[in-house]
């Protein structure tokens, strides 16, 4: 591309970067893969011989149910975020007003606010004598406090509340780039609103939809503190399961095996995404 003069700067910076990424990113990931084949005994966290027993243990109705439930909850959460977020992002992207940058800032703020704090604020809203119950009781709609907290519903509300900005921001970037003349052209050529949306707007904003879905779906399965704080004893998701195996049950090999399976499923999903996006767009994603 360009010729370089002496290359000291180039090679020393590349050296630091590669060393860092190999030691703290690649090597640890390989160690998880290796640990998933280790044996479990009480004296050591990881020990030989290598075995497939951890994977065999996963084929158990309890773990399968948690896997299924996590995918179901994360999928539902992603759909809700998409349905709420798409019209929202579309309206903001189409605004031509001097308040637009302010409105955008208002979405960026929750994006960067600690999700732990936002989860905690949801407890205040949902608890039996919290705001929602109190207002509904005051309005006379219900006569005793609503058991909202510590249910699957409260976990879902917490997840959507936490992850909605992650859906809105990629959608917003994508919809802002949409050439609106194409929409006008479709309308001029006689397409009705629905056809225009389905045949023009939707395909053109698909990259934004997919990035948004990935950014919501991935954390939804692993934010262990949301089910922990908002959910009941039965709302255990994949994140809680992994955390539990590592820090409570001290069964690192099993925890690693769960993570490996989980990562593989995600990798396949991301590969599909990569294919649909085409390689030219991944530069823009970065």
């Amino acid at each position: 591309m360009k010729q370089h003069d002496d290359g000291t700067l180039k090679y020393s910076s590349l050296g630091i970067i590669w060393l860092w990424l190999i030691v703290f990113a690649l090597l640890p990931f390989c160690l998880v893969a290796l640990a998933s084949f280790a044996s479990h005994d009480d004296a050591h966290l990881l020990s030989f011989p290598l075995t497939l027993a951890n994977y065999a243990e996963l084929n158990n109705s309890v773990y399968l149910r948690i896997f299924k439930q996590s995918f179901y909850i994360a999928g539902t959460c992603t759909m809700i975020c998409l349905l709420l977020g798409y019209p929202f992002a579309y309206i903001i992207a189409r605004i031509r007003s001097r308040y637009k940058s302010f409105l955008t800032l208002l979405i960026v703020i929750p994006f960067w606010t600690s999700s732990l704090i936002r989860t905690y604020s949801m407890i205040t809203m949902l608890k039996p004598k919290g705001i929602i119950s109190s207002i509904l009781m005051w309005l006379g709609i219900i006569d005793k406090p609503l058991p909202l907290l510590f249910t699957d519903t409260s976990v879902m509300i917490g997840l959507v509340y936490n992850l909605l900005p992650f859906m809105v921001l990629p959608l917003l970037t994508n919809i802002e780039r949409l050439d609106h003349r194409l929409v006008d052209a479709a309308r001029d050529l006689g397409a009705n609103r629905f056809t225009t949306f389905r045949r023009v707007i939707l395909p053109l904003t698909m990259p934004g939809i997919i990035s948004g879905c990935i950014l919501v779906f991935l954390p939804a399965m692993t934010i262990f503190y949301i089910p922990d704080l908002l959910g009941g004893s039965k709302s255990i998701l994949l994140g809680n399961l992994i955390q539990n195996q590592f820090l409570v049950a001290q069964n690192w090999p099993l925890g690693s095996a769960i993570s490996v399976v989980f990562t593989l499923i995600l990798a396949i999903m991301i590969l599909i995404y990569w294919r649909t996006m085409g390689k030219k767009d991944h530069r823009e994603f970065l």
Partner: peptide, 10 residues
């Protein structure tokens, strides 16, 4: 893209 929890345990 890699989930936080996987980075944490690794």
């Amino acid at each position: 893209l890699s989930p936080d929890i996987v980075m944490g345990i690794s």
